[in-house]
Simulated scan of single mutants.
Amino acid sequence: MSGSVRGGGTRRADAQRNRERILQAARDLVHEPGELKLNAVAKACGIGQGTLYRHFPTREDLLAEVYRHEVEELVAEAPRLLAALRPLDALAAWFDRVAAYARVKRDVFAAIEAATWQDLAAHSLGPIGEAVELLLAAGRSSGSVRPDAEARDVIVLISWLSRLDDAELDARGPRLLSILINGLRSPIQRDT
């Protein structure tokens, strides 16, 4: 099997597509009321349960990977936004993406055991902190972000988004993130 995963090789294209479909279906379904059922995930993405279990032997494995995938996408968004936007605008756009991440984080962490989510949270803090620092450093360098802004401060503030239910996140999330952006602006930027 030349295209299969063996000793770190590449995945077959259809296996990778199945994996992505499973993750997307689980991401969508974890938000639904009640416990996430693996058979519902398999049905939602049109694959057999055996295929799902080959990728994710347990429900917790699947949910952990949904969260890891969400973190990877969030982190990867920072340099893409910086390449396309001015630093403060990139930070604001990234915060819009953080709101979606907060929903997934809340739903996944509610569905898995405390020991697992604590481990996931600890592992995601570094990459998310690096993405925040990349955005802040670009803003400090351009003069649009205050020089004393630290990634840890931003992470503490945005972490509260995952504690909000959907209605409150929809109602307050954009305003809270706008307040945060305004607080991160350099004093020079506020005066212009």
Score class of each variant (00 low, 15 high):
41 V>K: 01
10 T>V: 12
113 E>A: 14
177 L>D: 09
80 R>N: 13
32 E>H: 11
79 P>C: 09
189 Q>R: 12
81 L>C: 11
59 R>G: 04
4 S>W: 05
95 F>G: 13
96 D>H: 00
104 V>N: 08
7 G>L: 11
136 L>W: 09
170 D>C: 00
98 V>Q: 01
85 L>V: 04
7 G>D: 13
50 G>K: 13
109 F>I: 11
109 F>C: 02
58 T>H: 08
67 Y>N: 05
118 Q>H: 15
85 L>S: 14
19 R>W: 01
138 A>I: 03
102 A>F: 01
22 I>F: 08
49 Q>T: 15
70 E>L: 02
50 G>Y: 07
59 R>M: 08
36 L>N: 01
30 V>W: 05
134 L>E: 08
50 G>A: 12
7 G>N: 14
40 A>S: 03
66 V>P: 12
186 S>Y: 08
41 V>N: 03
55 H>V: 08
32 E>W: 03
15 A>S: 07
129 G>P: 07
87 P>K: 10
159 S>T: 06
45 C>S: 00
134 L>H: 03
146 R>I: 04
179 I>P: 01
147 P>N: 15
120 L>A: 10
121 A>F: 15
133 E>W: 03
87 P>Q: 15
32 E>T: 14
73 E>T: 00
56 F>P: 05
172 R>H: 12
178 S>W: 09
86 R>W: 10
182 N>F: 05
66 V>R: 02
8 G>R: 03
116 T>L: 14
113 E>Q: 14
101 Y>T: 08
184 L>I: 00
92 A>G: 09
29 L>W: 01
91 L>I: 02
64 A>C: 15
31 H>N: 12
63 L>D: 06
16 Q>D: 06
134 L>R: 11
144 S>H: 07
111 A>C: 12
157 L>N: 05
165 D>Q: 04
153 D>C: 11
93 A>H: 05
182 N>W: 06
138 A>D: 01
149 A>W: 02
35 E>Y: 04
19 R>N: 09
13 A>R: 00
62 L>C: 07
67 Y>P: 08
124 S>E: 14
7 G>E: 12
125 L>T: 13
29 L>K: 00
4 S>N: 04
161 L>Q: 08
128 I>S: 07
90 A>F: 00
168 E>N: 08
102 A>T: 10
114 A>R: 13
66 V>A: 05
53 Y>M: 10
189 Q>K: 14
39 N>A: 03
153 D>G: 10
38 L>G: 10
112 I>W: 12
110 A>Y: 09
17 R>T: 03
100 A>M: 02
71 V>K: 10
144 S>Y: 01
186 S>P: 07
25 A>Y: 04
97 R>V: 13
89 D>R: 04
51 T>N: 04
74 L>F: 05
101 Y>Q: 05
21 R>Q: 10
30 V>N: 07
55 H>G: 09
125 L>G: 05
